[in-house]
Design a protein around this nucleic acid. Sequence first.
DNA 1: ATGAAAGCGCTAACAC
DNA 2: GTGTTAGCGCTTTCAT
Lengths: 334, 334
Amino acid sequence: MAELAQVSVGTVDRIIHNRGQVTPENIEKVQAIINEYGYVKNVMASNLALNKKYRFAVFLPKSDTIEYWKAPLNGIQKAAQELTIMGVALEYYFFDFNEDAFVQAAQQILIADHDGLVLAPIFQEAARSFLEKYQEKNTPIVLIDSNLPGLKNVFYVGQDSHKSGYLAGKLTGYGLQPNAHILILKLKSINENTNRNNVFIQRIQGFRDYFKEKKANHNFTLFETNSIIESKEVVAPSLFEGIDAVYVPNSRVHFVARFFEQHHITSVKLIGHELLKENIEYLQKERIDFLIHQKPEEQGYSAIQFLYKKKASQEENKEVIPIPIEIIVKENYY
Amino acid sequence: MAELAQVSVGTVDRIIHNRGQVTPENIEKVQAIINEYGYVKNVMASNLALNKKYRFAVFLPKSDTIEYWKAPLNGIQKAAQELTIMGVALEYYFFDFNEDAFVQAAQQILIADHDGLVLAPIFQEAARSFLEKYQEKNTPIVLIDSNLPGLKNVFYVGQDSHKSGYLAGKLTGYGLQPNAHILILKLKSINENTNRNNVFIQRIQGFRDYFKEKKANHNFTLFETNSIIESKEVVAPSLFEGIDAVYVPNSRVHFVARFFEQHHITSVKLIGHELLKENIEYLQKERIDFLIHQKPEEQGYSAIQFLYKKKASQEENKEVIPIPIEIIVKENYY
DNA sequence: ATGAAAGCGCTAACAC
DNA sequence: GTGTTAGCGCTTTCAT
């Protein structure tokens, strides 16, 4: 910078980072030049000189067994790649999908040393007590996928479950006749006793709220079941008799689609969540009408970007980073 | 890099940029180390040393009078801001929405000197002859918003009009009864004689194709009109009698929504394009059911990012950068 | 064919 | 309180 015009680089530096030790006159002189010439610091040179390193911990379920967790990981890796030149390095802690494994990984994270943490708080209680200890490190924490309300100093990049259930309600209701019969089919999954289950519950609540608010006079009927239909036997086709639309609040809507396919059930609308491969397959086959999701890759991506910005002190203050809710049909999937 | 392990920085540099002047032995030695240690060049240091500047020309209609053009400009500015530290500077050429102004601006661009160009080829013929001359500069060109087929060495970041019309067909047809009556209402606009008009034509074609392919047996009826309904008088409410759904292939769907509002026409589905303020207003009021768009900010953003990557030779080779087609309803607008 | 050295813009340690 | 200086990793020029 044009320090030549006035003083030395040292002084300018002290002023810019207001480390004090400068005469008011000088600080004014330099400020004037800054304003006049519209000086902006060269981030690259700065980073080069600082040679800063950021080490973030990523705490997620193993994604080689559960497709659902691949997407956020992809986003995380993409962000990591983009940010390596900024000195960002990730340390992964993957756990098997059970509470013991979660707790064990948590232990390791506590003894390790990082500049930030992103985690999916699958096991609510375990996550809570882990985070309480972790918070003493005074290092930013970003929750992903499902929230853990009531913790302060914890950021959230994830879905708005109630809102997406509400949207599902809208799409389901759109074009249905009055007195149509809707079935909410909550298929059991490994998430049954986890924090993810709250996501499904909130979606269902959102779904119901939509009809309560908008179609109250339409005499909709809502069933709810926890049946599993991975094997045909568990559910009888009769369950779907007289039903006009089925809403599956978790990612298992493809089971229903397959069931329809096998039993030649057509003309029942089918709405679900998440772009899992199998869901896409039935979307393409036009067995599923709508899939709703909040780009999970983007959640992972944003979480890492957020941590970086936070550390590089490029402001970034909001507590919740919203991810748009997207509507996917066969015709706009790509 | 670990040149210390072998030779001097100079030699390493020559190898990395293969400028020759190196013994095969050395090039092998260094290559080995590169592979082993997974060396990746520090882009920031590189840029610092190179002190490179990129100047891109942005050639768009004035957006202070036409809301439609604000969005891509926003995206462009966002990208510009992110890339200033990479030495990117933009030069804007805005023109009034007429061919003369377009041609005049084009002249200026031809005499100026840039490292890349992004433009909206509103006036097809004028744009064509301009681009033919511009291509001699041998500098990358990115088309935005509407394509100009048949030009080579020209990239496109924009919408897929046929596909989005097709999607509009799907959403319109979803939930309609057989024998429903659909009106395609093409409202006249300033774009009538421009390349943008092709966008609308292609959307309509996509819309029709959807019904041809999927609902042929449903006995849909399609009307088409070029009426303007900015003043009430032009269109009579009777036009909408017996109509179940209206599709407006351009961004003027809010005129229809307002017309419905004024004439208390309800229970006619309304589908359109673009998230203009006024369209959003009627989406919120539930007068418009669906709005389809391909994030125009993202188009602008991607265009600039593309140019930068192209120049910084970070590969980037595809000719068409796809922008997802998004479905917006009241419940997922934010 | 290769090495040495200056400089890109900024930071931080040190000397005055 | 202020100036000087080395060095971040890379490019480029100039000797050798």
